[in-house]
């Protein structure tokens, strides 16, 4: 069963078409990742799901019925831009949002989450005294305080250090395990790869990818070679059949020209240097993202 369904959604701001005929389904209990470059329409799509923006055309269904704006107590929303009442005390603020979301004992819930996020000592401090990371954690608590059935997170990990990002990731996974559906947008492809059951990429307002990681990678075939060799990237000069080289220093990722024999490439490289690792693989999500978002710059080094 899908908890969110978008059918042919279009939204324009003046002459700029932000979202163009977008359709997607978010299955219940899944972690659904929105990826796409800046300005691709991810936030606009999320805002339309939240009923903050109305689509110009198309239908949005949440829980197979109304839009999320009418079901706010069942949906948690973390906007991309963080905004909290600076003069309120931390616990008071969390309790306020708990009360707004009809949490039965907002104060107790606030204590629980503050403890979980290691913010108990800041409960009576004003929000304006918090660091950026702490504010983000507080805002995340506000989003999930009512344990919503759908949690929509716009860039939840941006600006967080690895420790705090890990804590939030654990809570997200825990909520999913308890039945929540998670929808989040991210620029971090490794997070999307590791966490998402389904991934949808929006580019220039249009959906360009949709499905599981495996199904997406299948679309691109096994056209990628990951290679480790003595002499590094310089050994690849003059090797035929390579469309693009992605140099990570210790390891290089090569995209083959369609129809090229990978064994021929391996043979050509071995003739020049000693190869310590050679793997034929599907392209990473990051590579797929770049292929789509920067098609004009494909080719050559990255």
């Amino acid at each position: 069963m899908n908890v969110i369904e978008l059918n042919h959604i279009t939204k324009s701001f003046g002459k700029n078409v932000a979202v163009n005929d977008l359709s997607l389904d978010v299955p219940e209990g899944s972690i659904y990742g929105f990826i796409g470059p800046n300005g691709s329409g991810k936030t606009t799509t999320i805002r339309m799901i939240m009923n903050i923006f109305y689509p110009d055309s198309g239908i949005i269904k949440v829980f197979n019925g109304e839009q999320a704006g009418n079901l706010l107590d069942r949906v948690g929303y973390l906007p991309e831009e963080r905004g909290l009442y600076k003069k309120m005390k931390v616990k008071e603020l969390i309790s306020f949002y708990g009360e707004l979301k009809h949490v039965s004992n907002p104060s107790r819930e606030a204590d629980y989450w503050l403890e979980k996020f290691d913010l108990s000592n800041w409960a009576k401090k004003k929000v304006e005294t918090l660091s950026k990371g702490m504010s983000q954690k507080v805002q995340f608590i506000i989003t999930i305080i009512n344990k919503p059935e759908i949690i929509i997170l716009d860039e939840p990990f941006s600006g967080l250090d690895p420790v705090n990002a890990e804590i939030i990731k654990e809570v997200i996974l825990d909520l999913r395990a308890k039945g929540s559906t998670i929808v989040f947008s991210t620029h971090d492809m490794s997070v999307a790869e590791k966490m998402c059951d389904f991934i949808s990429m929006i580019y220039k307002g249009k959906k360009v990818l949709d499905g599981t990681l495996e199904s997406i990678q299948k679309q691109f075939g096994q056209d990628t070679i990951r290679i480790q060799m003595e002499g590094g990237v310089s050994m690849l000069n003059g090797i035929a059949g390579i469309e693009k080289i992605n140099d990570f220093g210790q390891i290089q990722e090569l995209r083959m020209i369609p129809g090229t024999d990978s064994q021929q490439i391996l043979s050509d490289i071995i003739s020049k240097t000693r190869v310590t690792k050679f793997e034929i693989a599907s392209p990473s999500l990051n590579d797929i993202f770049i292929r789509i978002a920067r098609p004009e710059k494909n080719g050559g080094y990255e």
């Binding site: 903050i52 929303y77 906007p79 905004g83 909290l84 600076k86 805002q139």
Partner: peptide, 17 residues
């Protein structure tokens, strides 16, 4: 102020306009 400090959008995750 609530709009420019982005509090409005956070609130709109919990309440209607």
């Amino acid at each position: 102020e609530e709009k420019s400090e982005r509090v409005a959008e956070v609130l709109l995750g919990s309440v209607t306009p």
